[in-house]
């Protein structure tokens, strides 16, 4: 559970630390505290969907951390036999990095109002992600073909489970991506998709980070 505790510790520390900074040196009953009467003190101006996404990322972090903790604990038991990760995963990783890169590019283009680049970037990001997902499926097939089935060993089971879970999160992102891209292609104004693109970018970077963490763990064990 160490991993979970560390990650949750960071999340909780952030939350509580932030809250304490808001709260420590106030005496709320003192209605004339000049700082208090500054309208909006302590209110976050970021759009709700951004806060929502950050919160969601905290939830997903907890989810993956718990899976990783379970992985580490299960690994210590005697019957664990690591499976050889298909080399294809390296390629997949590269493709996912490209996807992330494409989103970053799109985000920059959005702030500069370059519609054409936004279109290209979105499509590139989506295609790379789709390729990644297909690549993951191919990797599954390769493993299956060489006899590494889910029931064979907990290492296999975790491999399928973790990659599936990560893939599902990407698919969820693809839904938002799909909506945004459709809007852009239908000729929506750049400013109107700005927030969606920003959120997608953050989410993709986050899932890339998760994947690198997962892949690193899978490789090292």
């Amino acid at each position: 559970m160490t991993i979970t505790l560390v990650l949750l510790g960071i999340i909780m520390a952030t939350v509580i630390g932030w809250l304490l900074r808001q709260t420590l040196n106030t005496e709320p009953w003192d209605a004339l505290d000049p700082a208090e009467n500054q309208p909006g003190r302590g209110v976050i101006t970021a759009p709700p969907s951004k806060i929502g996404l950050m919160t969601f990322i905290a939830v997903v972090t907890s989810l993956f951390a718990l899976f990783l903790s379970a992985y580490m604990m299960r690994m210590q038991l005697g019957d664990w036999r690591p499976l050889p990760e298909p080399d294809l995963l390296w390629l997949n990783t590269a493709v996912l990095v490209l996807a992330s890169f494409a989103f970053q590019m799109t985000r920059r283009a959005v702030t500069r109002g370059q519609l054409q680049t936004v279109k290209t970037g979105l499509i590139a990001g989506g295609v790379c992600t789709a390729l990644f997902l297909i690549g993951q499926l191919v990797a599954w097939q390769q493993l299956g073909a060489t006899g590494y089935f889910i029931t064979g060993n907990p290492a296999n089971a975790f491999f399928y489970l973790l990659t599936a879970l990560h893939g599902l999160h990407l698919l969820g992102g693809m839904w938002v991506w799909g909506r945004t891209t459709t809007r852009v292609l239908k000729g929506a104004d750049v400013e109107s998709v700005r927030l969606s693109v920003e959120l997608c970018t953050v989410y993709w970077h986050y899932l890339l980070l998760v994947w690198i963490g997962l892949f690193g763990l899978l490789l090292s064990t």
Partner: peptide, 11 residues
């Protein structure tokens, strides 16, 4: 976090 009205600080 986000939708508190004016003057509604956390505390």
């Amino acid at each position: 976090l986000q939708a508190r009205t004016r003057g509604m600080t956390l505390m």
